[in-house]
């Protein structure tokens, strides 16, 4: 499995956000995208997940451009943006069920995923009663039940407290050890063994 980008560029509102961005990612590696606010980190992630077409360059999964019809990229991808894709009027378990249907499903039980993110005690409570940190953890729980080697995460640690951040780092490291790949942006440093991490910095100095 190989996730690669070749000379990507992105133009928004007549401004070139970035150009000539390239990288290669293999199983067990994490790509940390850094840069100041407005440098284009979210835009880059949207290019990498296929939500947006690059203004030039290509994103490839196993040497096939992800935007082509033959590409099976989507069955290997789990995406998490800034927002939490949750319905307030549904319970944690119901939301997890829906998210479990959207992505390919692995063998991990939903209850187990909730317990890992310390949400086991609120599985039947409606999401509107959750704090921002709990909502983020529920979104992260949806990653655990998906059979997707590639995670593309935009600020996954947003709104998490110290315990939550440590939880996330544990899960991320576990995913990498199992041969998964992660692309993420973060304003915090990521406390995982440096051997896993590649850094990509956007924006000019």
């Amino acid at each position: 499995m190989l996730f690669s980008a070749h000379k990507l560029s992105c133009i928004r509102s007549h401004k070139t956000l970035f150009q000539d961005v390239s990288f290669e990612l293999s199983p067990g590696q994490l790509l940390l995208v850094e840069g100041k606010n407005g440098a284009g980190k979210t835009s880059l992630l949207k290019l990498l997940s296929g939500l947006r077409r690059p203004d030039s360059g290509e994103v490839k999964w196993n040497q096939v451009n992800i935007l082509q019809a033959e590409s099976d990229f989507r069955t290997y991808l789990a995406w998490l943006g800034h927002q939490n894709p949750l319905k307030e009027d549904q319970s944690a378990l119901e939301n997890l069920t829906m998210l479990g249907h959207i992505r390919p499903r692995n063998q991990v039980s939903m209850i187990e995923a909730l317990k890992t993110l310390q949400l086991g005690h609120v599985k039947h409570k409606f999401v509107k009663t959750f704090s921002a940190g709990m909502k983020r953890r529920l979104s992260l729980a949806s990653l655990l039940i998906a059979e997707t080697p590639l995670w593309i995460l935009d600020e996954p640690q947003a709104a998490l407290d110290k315990t939550g951040i440590t939880l996330f780092e544990t899960l991320a490291e576990q995913h990498l050890k199992q041969g998964g790949m992660i692309v993420m942006t973060s304003h915090h440093s990521v406390n995982i063994a440096p051997k896993y991490i590649q850094t990509l910095t956007l924006g000019h100095d």
């Binding site: 939500l51 989507r74 995406w79 943006g81 927002q83 939490n84 894709p85 998210l99 959207i102 992505r103």
Partner: peptide, 11 residues
């Protein structure tokens, strides 16, 4: 709430 994004990115 980002649900639409999930569907757009899914298989």
């Amino acid at each position: 709430d980002g649900t639409l994004e999930q569907w757009a990115v899914s298989q």
